[in-house]
Amino acid sequence: MHRDPLTIGTQTFTSRLFTGTGKFSAKAQIAEMLARSGSEMITVALRRIDMGAGTENILNFIPKTVTLLPNTSGARTAQEAVRIARIAREAGCGRFIKIEVITDSKYLMPDNWETLKATEILAKEDFVVLPYVLPDLPLARRLEAAGAAAVMPLGAPIGSNRGLETRALIALLIENCRVPVVVDAGLGRPSHAAAAMEMGADAVLVNTAIATAQDPAAMGHAFALAVSAGRMAFKAKLSEESATARASSPLTGFLDSPPQKSPQ
């Protein structure tokens, strides 16, 4: 296998499966899942600590080699997201931040407008900003211009497991974005992840489907395989398409030029 790394910000990833730490029934499962899936980036949320219960520190279950992607969940405005991001950076776990601003508690749709504002601020503060958004091409362009390191369109509502409901819109992002496109949310099955990769997504982020599986480690592994397969399929197709494109002179262009003498 030749290397096919993904670079976000200044960091390079071998695995194109990003995972999350939410909804696991035991924290120990996270470590096992990371080991089996090979995921190199995982999301975490920031909360007030519970002074009463001596809960185990989640960081103890995440190897140093895995990049932490703190999210801004709980934020309802750009300002709140910015505050959470700054706090997260002080925790000493790197510059990555997933901006997640949700004002709709019924469908958990991200607020693209607030997300853009937060991105503009945080990118200037040298964060590696990964905004979680509804797939919207003009917005994605603005996010890029604002300095986003990637765009993370949702496939379906968070936790819905419904798959690539926004496929056609994501396809536009994939076709047009210069920064990596990471499909986040709604991917309920490995086949969903494979489909996203096959259509050219640079990575996927999967949390619920893995964490709530009966065997999260095995499911993490299954998603990893699906992501690799989808990526491989995309690349295989890509080379075919580029072969066509290489014919910069069109296939029938020879009909317009004067006939050449046969060689020899």
Binding site: A247, L251, T252, F254, P259, S262, P263
Partner: peptide, 12 residues
């Protein structure tokens, strides 16, 4: 058919 023409037809 001519050699050059046949060459072009390969991809058609």
């Amino acid at each position: 058919e001519r050699a050059d023409f046949r060459n072009h037809l390969i991809r058609l």
